[in-house]
Nucleic acid binder design. Structure first.
Lengths: 82, 82
DNA sequence: TTACCTATGTTTAGTAA
DNA sequence: ATTACTAAACATAGGTA
């Protein structure tokens, strides 16, 4: 184990990431956090109901909702993957 | 200005907040961050497209999307406030 | 209500395995 | 693809005004 420097988290520019590998890792991390924050926390803490629809960088459709019964997003949108 | 203690952020339990005033403030803060994170950052950094639909604790409908042209959520859902 | 403060809790970019 | 690590960046609950 070469001791790595461990420079911590750099500040990033708000623009599309160039490096595709980093982009995919970042997308996975942030998507996870987004869903957890949105679904688990905002819903539980505040009694909100949330639906999120995402097209990933590669065009994949991801969706989630915490709506108990108010309406059925998937049905009403007739969601299909591309 | 009485010098306040500034105790910082306490850890909270993951359950519906009791205090309604705190709940509303927290909802506003988190909703803002959620939208900014979801829209501004995930979209810009990773080229994702996102739509979010939220019913607030008081039942108000809030929605946003960063979808350029893929589809029109509002139209397809025929969204109306309650 | 809104806005600011602040210490602390949480996320995360880059890197490596 | 995933996972772990680290330290800095960031979010945020409660308080104050």
């Amino acid at each position: 184990m070469t001791p790595n420097k461990g420079n911590g988290r750099p500040k990033i520019k708000m623009e599309k990431m160039e490096n595709e590998s980093n982009l995919n890792v970042t997308f996975a991390k942030r998507r996870r956090t987004l869903f957890q924050k949105a679904a688990s926390e905002l819903c539980i803490l505040c009694g909100a109901e949330i639906a999120i629809i995402v097209f990933s960088p590669s065009g994949m459709l991801i969706h989630m909702w915490t709506l108990p019964a108010r309406f059925d997003i998937a049905t009403r949108l007739d969601i299909k993957s591309r």
